[in-house]
Design a protein around this nucleic acid. Structure first.
Length: 723
DNA sequence: AGGTTAGTAATTTTT
DNA sequence: TTACTAACCT
């Protein structure tokens, strides 16, 4: 037997060797999913069924693609390049650039990011006279994005849905936005998928060409695919029908981003004759952790069904701990203490993670970790290429490469200040629209005609002259030196140097890093393409550090010890998710809890509090319903009092100075337990801003009130008085 | 044109 | 509480 096959368990082997026809591999957490995927790819090649270039391998993230490429090159024992292995978006771009003309683009189209998308849509909405206050562009954008996720071009958006947004003009806005994109020779992320699918659907010869090329298709994280991605895959798989999707329905947590768990649940219907193989042997976690996770997820209705089994019974495995605490400060303190203890016992910080439901929760822990001196890193913060200064620098670069990039022009024409304000921009826009030319050209025209006055003329004049000069330098001095020069001569660096805000020095550092990053690419255009598709963080900050991140960001990672704080109703499961998505959302929240639990190899500490500091005040909370869903035999429940006893008993415990038991005075003190809201459903109330209304529901100190004038609102009881 | 202040809203995030 | 935006003032 070939030795790479010998290293697999029977299910994994079946997943690797079942090559013909559709196959769904249901891979539970920690069951060797990546190994199966890469080994399968290698097996296709090594068994001589297809060349490496005849396999299409699709992932969601660049990280996953990179990992797969590396492991594949190890298995094949040679470097692998130019493979059809990448993200849906990168592969779509590659296909689309080849046939751009067929979808009305030139092959040098630019890819807009979220920020550009929103600016553009806002402009479109202003032109269409839509109140952007009533209809935030962000909201409209998300609906357009959702339509794109479903494979709907403007003409295919159902009439019932278009009434939803922009005063019933949703579809018109979508169409206008698409028109603007086309005029700019630009696409957004959604378009990459949508246009590729359209291309494959309307051009049978091209589709046939790809059918001939791709003899095998591999898909990672299938539970996260949306409808267009499914259509995209289905079109390409029609050829040989050798499609293998790997995923875990219990880890589908991106529905709010358009992912449809139905894709994986429906697989056998979508691909008749499909085989399904379950990977249930878990190589990661202890028996109690798996029992807790399995018990919890069994409360979901909407799933394929799968049971994680530990590899062997480990007698002394720790139960999952559930710690009850009085308030959120105490929770941060408890976790800090436990981390210090683990550290003293010789555990690496890099093997410990604190996973929270929402980003803002990390702050409390950061503060605590700083005071006790534990090095940490926050994963999934603002990404490098999304920082203001980097996006500005990118706009300069884009304008050099594409003089017609209006969005880039607008972003930096007055940054730093060049006296080009609203008035000047209005005349530029008017001219550009009238002549059908880009803003740069319009500016040149107006300058030549002496149609601009004062500082705007000076500023624009030297700006355009500079652009020309820099473009010349690009040829002679190369892109790295030129961009450094651009940032300097434009006054952009100086702008931040003069800025007194605390983050300014960091921004200048980032700009230096930006110049360094440029050096890794042959050309500026190549760099821009990379940036558009690979918006990732460099989170490889060295050293032994604790990880702090959201549950979403933790998917795919694993740690020895995992802390799961904030298991309270409203926070987790998240109230807003529940309000918007009902039972489906609750199940997704539960899957998120499942993801959290299964990140741990050896230890899980779940915690919840009675009072949580939120924004300015304290809020009371109930334990999360998920806590009751954890099977008793797998958990150990520790009450606040019990925890205090153990802490006191432990040498060097929290209460060394005896002060921690006394809550600090003033506004920092959380409210006493047992407080009851004086309001009940049906009671008439008055609110300073919303006026009179009737209470329709009560949850803790939150009231749902139907106001006579202002509609239905969710408010805290302390802001209303009996009418 | 540009700086200042008041008002408002606050999940999850990759490409 | 903070962070961001829009209206307002100079």
């Amino acid at each position: 037997m070939v030795d790479y096959l010998a290293r697999l368990n029977p299910e994994q082997r079946a997943a690797v060797e079942t090559l013909e026809g559709p196959l769904l591999v249901l891979a539970g957490a920690g069951t060797g999913k990546t190994r199966v995927l890469t080994t399968r790819f290698a097996h296709i090649v090594l068994s001589g069924r297809a060349g490496p270039h005849q396999v299409l391998a699709v992932t969601f993230t660049n990280k996953a693609a990179r990992e797969m490429r590396e492991r594949l090159s190890q298995l094949l024992n040679r470097p692998v390049e130019g493979l059809w292995l990448g993200t849906f978006h990168a592969l779509s771009t590659r296909i689309l650039r080849r046939h751009a003309a067929l979808v009305g683009l030139s092959s040098a189209f630019t890819i807009l990011d979220t920020d550009d998308q929103q600016r553009l849509l806002k402009q479109v909405m202003e032109v269409e006279r839509i109140d952007t206050k009533r209809w935030p562009p962000q909201l409209v954008m998300s609906l357009i994005q959702r339509w794109k996720d479903k494979g709907l071009t403007p003409d295919r958006v159902p009439e019932t849905e278009e009434a939803e947004i922009g005063a019933g003009r949703g579809r018109a806005l979508y169409a206008a936005y698409q028109e603007r994109l086309r005029a700019l020779n630009a696409v957004d992320f959604g378009d990459l998928l949508l246009l590729t699918t359209e291309l494959l659907r309307t051009e049978p010869e091209i589709l046939a060409q790809y059918h001939r090329l791709f003899r095998y298709i591999l898909v990672d994280e299938y539970q996260d695919t949306n409808l267009v991605q499914y259509l995209w895959l289905r079109l390409l798989a029609q050829g040989h029908r050798n499609i293998c999707c790997v995923g875990d329905d219990d880890q589908s947590v991106y529905s709010w981003r358009g992912a449809e768990i139905e894709n994986i649940l429906r697989f056998e219907k979508d691909f008749p004759g499909a085989r399904v193989i379950r990977l249930e042997r878990n190589y990661r976690s202890t028996a109690p952790i798996l029992a807790a996770a399995t018990g919890l997820i069994s409360h979901n209705q909407c799933r394929m069904g799968k049971t994680l089994r530990p590899i062997e019974e480990t007698g002394q495995a720790e139960p999952v701990q559930i710690v009850e605490l009085h308030d959120s400060d105490e929770e941060a303190r408890m976790i800090g203490e436990r981390i210090e203890r683990l550290r003293r016992e010789g555990h690496k910080l890099a093997e410990i993670a604190v996973l929270v439901r929402a980003g803002f929760q990390t702050r409390a822990f950061e503060e605590r970790l700083i005071t006790i001196g534990v090095p940490y890193r926050v994963i999934g913060g603002p990404r490098f290429y999304e920082r203001t200064e980097i996006r500005d620098a990118l706009a300069y670069a884009r304008l050099l490469v594409h003089p017609s990039d209006d969005l880039a022009f607008e972003r930096i024409v007055n940054l730093p200040r060049r006296g080009v304000g609203e008035t000047a921009m209005r005349s530029l826009h008017e001219r550009a629209r009238a002549q059908g030319v880009p803003l740069t050209a319009a500016a040149a025209e107006l300058l030549a005609e002496n149609a601009l006055r004062g500082r705007a003329r000076e500023g624009l004049g030297s700006f355009l002259a500079n652009l020309e000069r820099w473009r010349g330098a690009l040829e002679e001095a190369g892109h790295v030196a030129t961009m450094a020069r651009v940032l300097d001569e434009s006054g952009y660096i100086a702008m931040w140097q003069e800025d007194k805000s605390p983050e300014a020095p960091g921004r200048i550092e980032n700009l230096k890093e930006f110049i360094r990053a440029l050096g890794e690419f042959e050309t500026l255009a190549g760099f821009l393409e990379h940036v558009a598709l690979v918006m990732e963080n460099d989170e490889n900050a060295a050293g032994d550090r604790l990880s702090l991140m959201t549950l979403h960001a933790a998917k795919g990672l694993e740690f020895d010890t995992v802390f799961l704080p904030g298991w309270e109703e409203g926070l987790f499961p998240n109230q807003r998710a529940l309000d918007e998505g009902g039972v489906k959302a609750l199940e997704e929240e539960r899957r998120l809890a499942y993801v959290g639990l299964t990140r741990a190899r050896r230890r899980v500490i779940v915690s919840f509090v009675a009072f949580r500091k939120l924004y300015s005040g304290w809020q009371s909370a109930f334990p999360s319903r998920f806590l009751e869903e954890l099977p008793d035999h797998a958990v150990e429940r520790i009450t606040s009092a019990a925890w205090q006893r153990t802490a006191q008993a432990a040498s060097g415990g929290v209460f060394r100075d005896g002060s921690s038991l006394v809550l600090r005075g003033g506004g920092k003190e959380p409210p006493r337990p047992g407080r009851q809201t004086p309001f009940a459903a049906g009671v008439r109330v008055f609110h300073e801003k919303f006026g009179y209304g009737t209470v329709t529901a009560v949850e803790n100190d939150w009231l749902e009130i139907a106001f006579d004038k202002a509609g239905s609102k969710h408010v805290l009881d302390r802001y209303v008085e009996p009418a």
